[in-house]
Lab assay of single mutants.
Amino acid sequence: MIINNLKLIREKKKISQSELAALLESSRQTINGIEKNKYNPSLQLALKIAYYLNTPLEDIFQWQ
């Protein structure tokens, strides 16, 4: 199971779900699903999230 700190990191950087979704060329619903652990992002999307949040991938997503 993958757990994530996306919501915590996103809020700390003062970025809304909609703003992050626009940067990622994704939907706000996708970001919401990832944050609620209802959806696991593809590797490509996970890497883009890490890039746009300027945060190491392993700080956002962790195996448990």
Rank of each mutant, 00 (worst) to 15 (best):
L20A: 00
R10T: 03
F61E: 00
E35K: 03
L43K: 10
L8T: 15
K13T: 06
K13W: 09
N54W: 06
A22E: 12
I49C: 02
N37C: 12
I3Q: 08
I34L: 06
K13S: 09
N40E: 14
K7F: 06
S18W: 12
P56K: 10
I60V: 08
N4A: 03
I15T: 03
L6Y: 00
S42L: 04
I60R: 01
N37S: 10
Y39A: 09
L8V: 14
L6Q: 02
T55V: 12
K7D: 03
S27Q: 06
S42N: 08
L24D: 00
Q64G: 14
I2H: 08
S26I: 15
N4D: 04
N40S: 15
L45Q: 06
E25M: 13
L6I: 03
I9E: 04
G33Q: 15
S27M: 04
A22N: 12
I2A: 08
K14Q: 12
A50P: 00
N5Y: 08
A21N: 02
L47Y: 10
S26M: 15
I2K: 10
I9N: 02
N37P: 02
L45M: 13
Y52S: 06
I34N: 02
I3D: 04
T30H: 11
L23Y: 13
I3W: 07
E58R: 11
Y52I: 15
K48I: 05
E58S: 13
I34R: 02
K48P: 00
Q64V: 12
P41L: 07
I31K: 01
A46R: 06
D59C: 14
P41K: 03
F61Q: 00
I49P: 00
K14F: 09
Q17P: 04
I49M: 05
Y52A: 14
L23E: 06
Q17L: 12
K48M: 10
Q62V: 14
D59H: 11
L8H: 13
M1Y: 07
K7A: 11
W63Q: 03
S26Q: 12
K13D: 02
E35M: 04
K36R: 13
T30K: 10
Y39I: 15
K12A: 14
L43T: 07
K12P: 01
E35P: 02
W63G: 02
G33D: 15
L43F: 13
L57G: 01
F61L: 02
F61G: 00
I2E: 04
D59V: 08
S18K: 13
K48G: 06
I60Q: 02
S27T: 14
S42I: 05
L8F: 10
S26L: 15
M1F: 08
S42V: 04
A46F: 04
W63P: 03
S16I: 06
K13R: 12
L53Y: 01
L24P: 01
Q44G: 12
F61W: 05
I2W: 10
K48T: 05
L57T: 03
Q44N: 11
R28C: 11
S18C: 12
K38R: 13
L24G: 01
I34V: 04
Q29L: 10
A22K: 14
L43P: 09
L23A: 15
R10N: 01
L57D: 00
T30W: 11
L45S: 01
N4S: 02
T55W: 04
T30N: 05
S27H: 08
L53E: 00
K38H: 13
P41G: 04
K36I: 11
I2L: 12
P56N: 08
Q29K: 14
A21V: 04
K36H: 13
A46Y: 04
N32E: 15
I31Y: 01
E19A: 14
L6S: 01
L6N: 01
Q64C: 11
Y52F: 14
L43D: 03
Q62S: 08
I49F: 02
K38S: 10
S42P: 12
L43W: 12
P41R: 03
Q44I: 11
E19D: 11
Q64P: 14
I15D: 00
L20I: 03
A21C: 04
E25G: 15
K48C: 09
G33V: 07
E58L: 09
S26D: 08
I2N: 06
I2G: 04
L23V: 11
I3C: 13
L20P: 00
I60L: 12
Q17K: 08
A50H: 01
L53W: 02
L47D: 04
Q29F: 09
Q17D: 03
E19F: 10
K7R: 14
S26N: 07
K7H: 07
P56E: 07
E19W: 09
K14H: 11
E25V: 09
E25T: 09
K7W: 05
E11I: 13
E58W: 11
P56S: 07
L20R: 01
N54R: 09
Q62N: 05
M1N: 05
L8E: 14
E19S: 11
K14L: 09
S16R: 06
N5W: 09
N37T: 04
I49L: 05
K48A: 09
N37H: 09
L57M: 09
E25W: 07
K13E: 06
E25S: 14
I9M: 07
Y52N: 05
R10Y: 08
L23D: 05
W63F: 08
E35V: 03
S42K: 05
L45N: 01
Y39M: 12
G33M: 15
M1G: 04
R28I: 15
L8P: 07
L45K: 00
I3H: 07
I3M: 12
N32C: 11
E58V: 09
T30C: 15
E19L: 10
Q64W: 08
A22G: 11
G33I: 08
N40Y: 13
L57C: 07
Q17A: 07
L24Y: 01
K12Q: 14
K48N: 06
E11D: 08
D59Y: 10
A46E: 04
I31A: 01
K48W: 06
A46L: 06
I9R: 03
Y39N: 07
S27D: 15
S26A: 13
N37E: 06
T55R: 04
S27W: 05
Q17Y: 07
E25L: 12
F61D: 00
A22D: 11
L20M: 05
Y52Q: 07
N40P: 13
I60C: 03
D59G: 08
A50K: 01
N4W: 06
E19G: 10
A50R: 02
S26P: 01
Y52K: 04
L8C: 15
I15A: 02
A46K: 04
Y51G: 06
S42C: 06
Q64S: 14
E19Y: 11
N54T: 08
K13V: 08
K12Y: 10
S16M: 05
L23H: 10
N32W: 08
I31T: 01
I60H: 00
I3T: 10
K12R: 13
N32F: 05
M1P: 10
I2V: 12
S16N: 06
N37F: 07
Y52T: 10
